[in-house]
């Protein structure tokens, strides 16, 4: 039996997207550059990122979040959810940089800098953040060097493509940064609320 043999919420969201002209158009507009290999690379990452940003800018959240934040009960579903952003092109890289170095390169780009700031503002677990603002800020990072994705099939834990090895004296700061992605109760609750269809009025 293949990985995606049973129906699931992520599959339903993909179906709904392809039946909607706008979602269908912008979905293939990023699948194309994100899956086209160039002479010496797996894809043109810059073009893939740009098309992903357009997808989340132009497609109504009902459809874009539907595919990114769908709720899952089995691996077929979570694997499909993980594939939404075509991670082999948009996410993974040959090497995993240190998160603080990645943060520095994010800060040299104005889109990445402002979207990362939005994420840290709007997904603060302590300050009763608004779920819709948090999801918007999180999805806004997709298509920047800070592109996050689900890190495994069993949880809603997410992270950008980086780790905290070689942090030296900044290990604590690095862990704090990475933890804001991986163990963020505000973000997890926001994703869950969307996936369960609760808090519907917000979207």
């Amino acid at each position: 039996e293949t990985a995606l043999s049973k129906g699931n919420n992520c599959l339903d969201a993909a179906k709904a997207c392809n039946l909607n002209d706008t979602c269908k158009k912008f979905r293939s507009a990023y699948i194309t550059p994100c899956t086209s290999s160039t002479s010496n690379e797996i894809c043109n990452k810059r073009k893939c990122h740009k098309a992903l940003r357009q997808f989340f800018d132009k497609v109504p959240p009902k459809h874009s979040y539907g595919m990114l934040f769908c709720s899952c009960r089995d691996i077929a579903c979570t694997e499909r959810r993980r594939q939404t952003i075509v991670p082999v092109c948009s996410y993974e890289d040959k090497e995993k940089p240190n998160c603080l170095n990645l943060q520095d390169s994010c800060k040299t780009n104005y889109i990445c800098r402002s979207r990362l700031a939005d994420f840290f503002t709007n997904c603060q677990p302590e300050s009763r953040s608004n779920y819709a603002d948090c999801l918007l800020a999180y999805s806004g990072l997709i298509g920047t060097v800070m592109t996050p994705n689900y890190i495994d099939s069993n949880s809603l834990s997410v992270a950008p493509w980086c780790d905290c090895s070689n942090s030296g004296n900044d290990l604590e700061e690095c862990r704090k940064f990475l933890n804001f992605f991986q163990n963020n109760t505000c973000l997890k609750n926001a994703i869950q609320a969307f996936g369960n269809g609760t808090d519907v009025n917000v979207w």
Partner: peptide, 15 residues
């Protein structure tokens, strides 16, 4: 019509 993309059962995208 615009291109159509989909993910197959082996997690490979097609257009």
């Amino acid at each position: 019509d615009d291109d159509l993309s989909f993910l197959d059962d082996n997690l490979v995208y097609h257009i």
